[in-house]
Structures are given as C-alpha cells and as structure tokens.
Simulated assay, not measured.
Amino acid sequence: MLVVSIGTAALIIVLSVFNGMEGLLRSIYGTFDAPLQVLPAEGKSFVFTTDLREKVRSIDGILDITEVIEDNALIKYNDAQMIVKIKGMSDNFIEQGRMKNAVRQGELKFLDNNTAYAIIGRGIQFNLGVSLRNDFLALQFFYPKNVKPGAIDPYQYYSRANIMPGGVFALEQQYDDNYVFVPLSFTEKLLDYRGKRTSLELMVDPEQDLLTIQDNLAEILGKKFVVLNSDQQHADLYKVLKIEKLFVFIIFSMIVGIASINIFFSLSMLVIEKKPDIGSLFAMGAPKKLVRKIFLLEGAIIAFIGAGSGLVLGFAFSWLQQTYGIVSMGVASSVTQAYPVEIIPTDFLFTAITIIFITFMASIQPAIRASNQGVQRV
C-alpha cells in the first residue's frame, strides 16, 4: 500500500512539473510572439503589396501588422564572428512593447538621432564580447549575394552593413543565442529584398475569438499563405513536451505495476495463512464467489487507499511548490527561480484510474486461488 501511495504521488508531481514547463514556455513565447503569423506556403518570401495589406486589414479583429524579414547572416564584432538569425522588424514592433520586459541592458529602440540600433540576444553578446559602452565599434553584418559566375572582385559575393548595438535581451535560450532584431529598412537593404517580406506578425483584438480571426484570414488570403496562431508557431516544441509527458506516465505506471507484485505476493501469502478460515467458510456453505469477492475486496482496499493517499500527497506537494516555490531551480540566471508546477484535474483522473486498475489486477489471481481452495474440515 505504501509503495502504491509513493508511486502515485511521484507520478502526480512529475506530471504537474511537465504542465508547469509547458505553461512557462507559453508565457514566455506569449509575451513576445504575435497572436497570428502569416507565412508563404511556398518559398521563404513574398511581395508585400498594398492589395495584400488591405486584405489583411479588412479582417475584423486585426489591430496591427508588423512586417518581418528574417534570414541567416554572418555577424562580426571586433575579432569574433558567428552565424545568427537577423530579424528585421517594422517600427511598430517597438511600439507594441512585446520585448519591454526582456531587455536587460541598453534600450528597446531601433532609431535614435538618425542612428540605427540593433537589439541582440544575451548569448550573442557573450559569444562576441559586445559592449554597449563602446560607441566606436559597430556590429558588422555580411550576407551572400546571388552573383553570376566569373566575378573576380570578392566584394561582389556579399553585401555588408554596419549597425550599432543598442540593447541586449534575455528571453529564452533559443532566441538569446541566435536572434538579432534590427530595423526593417536595414535588413531590406542588406538582404536586397526590395519590397519582399518573409512573414507578417499580426496583433489582434483580445476580446474577439482568435480562431475565428485565423479562419477568416486564411480564407481571404487563399492557399498561397499559411496562417499560424501562437501555439502552431511552436507546434514541434509543444508536441515534444506532450510526448515526453506520455512516456513519463507510461514509465511510472510500469514502475507501479512492478511494485504491485508485492500486493500479489502479500495476498498470496494471505491465502496460505487463511487457508483454515477459507475452509471454515466453505464448510458453512459459503460459495466460491463469496470467497473470491473477499480477496478482491482486500485488493480494492489496497488500491483505493494507496491511490487516494498518493493523490493527496501529490496534490499537497504540487500545491506547495506552485504557491511557495519550495524547490528552486538552483540557477541564478534561470527564467524562473522555482520549478514551475501546474495542477490539472485530468492528470489526477487518469492517474487514479491507471493505478487502481493495476493494483486491482494484481489481486485477481490470489482471489481465484482462494476460491479454488478445497473445503477443509474443522
């Protein structure tokens, strides 16, 4: 019974931590990602025409359009260099304030006194040794050109542009180590896109149904574009979390199943120990069904008490962690100081059903053996 209780509590705690991790990622991405994103169905860019802009704005519920140009580029600072994702954003991105809580150094700005600025991830700052206090050293970006064969001048093979670092953000490692945000005009010139965009990020009215807006937008844009909501933009990540949670559930259920062998042997020993009493029941006219029910009831008691106490222990620890953050991450630079936990009722339901089923099944064979005991004369 104790083993069942501990296994149930451990399963509830682990599942709650996975829920908390998913919720933490949603909160991180939710503060930065736009509710809707428009991407080309084929290729990596499209021409952003006035007609396309009017189509998007005609959808009820869309408040703002952020134009985006995103691609890989080589960045160099002093003697260090690395490949990064350069993401050019239109000026309204700053006005939306989606990164205002993520900036750790400098300012959230793209333009100041006719000088363009870049906002870089903290990981990139560490790798390149970028100093915001150095007003004489700029970030150098290099992007390969689509030149014809036979060109002799090496400068014809790539375009180059400089920009000053204006701020450092810390959002999430994937962004911190790879992304540099710059003005849209800077990226358009560096990549020579000439009116092309790689995506559109749309801000919507929070009081309206997001899925309805998404469906209406997808219908008016047609098959040439794909419209993604915030969850679909990171669908692979959330899918991995759900798969990991499923495998953890299966593994812990197997552990409880192995632990339930103790219940099997305990009931088997009880059958041997109570053999005279079983014989007395048969002598008094008790049917096999009654004897079988007695031992099945014994297994059910173990199952319900073990699962019930485990659910209570798991809920108590998860609630304490969610409320007071008892167990810390142990990393000073982590996004959250304590392990995130989220309690979901369905986890308790499926865990209870699984644990009770496993432990109850372990009591079937001893109950059948007890009912097959011959009538012992008293």
Rank of each mutant, 00 (worst) to 15 (best):
V204E: 12
G167V: 14
L221Y: 07
G23S: 08
W319M: 12
A41W: 06
E22M: 12
F48R: 03
F348D: 03
Y117Q: 07
I278L: 01
P206S: 10
F142L: 15
L349K: 11
F18Y: 15
I12W: 10
F357T: 15
V327H: 06
K55S: 07
A307W: 05
E42N: 12
A316V: 15
F295L: 05
S58Q: 08
G166L: 09
T66Y: 00
P345N: 11
N229T: 02
P345V: 13
D135N: 08
I251T: 06
R160I: 06
S363G: 12
F142E: 10
I83F: 12
T354Q: 05
S333C: 00
M361F: 15
T187E: 02
R53V: 02
D51K: 12
L2A: 11
F181L: 09
L132V: 10
P183K: 09
S363V: 11
L202R: 01
I251K: 04
A370K: 01
G279M: 01
I220C: 08
I6E: 07
I343A: 04
G285Q: 04
A151H: 08
L39P: 00
V47N: 04
P340I: 05
R98H: 05
D91T: 04
E201D: 12
K196T: 02
F225Y: 13
V56A: 03
S230D: 01
L221V: 08
T198G: 08
K87E: 09
T212H: 04
A116Q: 14
S328E: 14
